[in-house]
Amino acid sequence: MRKFLLGSVAAGLMLVAGVAQAQETKTIAVSIPAADHGWTGGVVYHAQEQAKRLEARYPGLKVIVKTSPDGASQANALEDLTTQGIDALVTLPHNSDELTDPIRQVKEKGVFITVVDRALTDNAVADLYVAGNNPALGRVAGEYIKEKLNGKGNVVVIRGLPIVIDEERNKGFDEGIAGSDIKVLDRQFGNWSRDDAFKVMQDYLSKYPQIDAVWTQDDDMAVGVLEAIKQANREDIQFVVAGAGMKDMIKKVMDGDKMIPVDILYPPAMVAVAMDLTAAGLYDHLPVRGSYILDATLVTKDNAKDFYYPDSPF
């Protein structure tokens, strides 16, 4: 499989800009998780927006966006979509193990498969793979914390849910801080939920008298973490590193908030990139097969305004 890395989202969009022809009738199905936290909420929003844009750009194109609350219902949704007759499928699978086979069955019907964010267990199934760089998201965070703390300090980690992405990010983080005297005091699951992250952070604060930095890997959870720190009036915590690119957090970075000095991009808009590339492959016969890995860009005060989308729900 050929592999090319793209510098940014912007570059991905450039590829197909300005293309408009062909009256062929094609259908793209988009199967994604229902909005169960802020990031997936962003995915749903961007998928729906992009569907409108693509249908305007390619007359004759029909885009069906379908959300599912869990893996099993996503498998059902895939079957239903296939029976409607589709030419391409863009999917962000709930989890890799459960959905690899259902997606393979869709592929066997001759459908072009684009997988977003969560790689399948069999790489041969996806024609196109678009994802954020999960190991890099962890590594960038780790490297930033290492540098900012001068290689020494106590860090607590709040994980998401026990799935592959979370493991990859954690491994990346460990690589990032490798070789330093950074000590990870604790790792607990916050389930990518503000409420749960709030509780876990409260408990960390009770448990550890000295914490230098927090890594939460997700902006939604950072909201809960910040409230817990604010309530405890603790001065020892210097900053929190989260990730994804939620507008509230980007705003804080832009405004120079001390607690949120940086954010690491893992944009839900990646689904739009995937849809765009898929449509380009269908209509413009561009060679889009392969893997598109979006950089885990470090958002700082200097470049934050480039990533601030006040109209997005996320």
Binding site: A35, H37, W192, S193, D195, F198, V223, E227
Partner: peptide
Amino acid sequence: PRLGAATPTTGL
């Protein structure tokens, strides 16, 4: 007033 928001995980 705790987090100032209702999210899809509220009350789960």
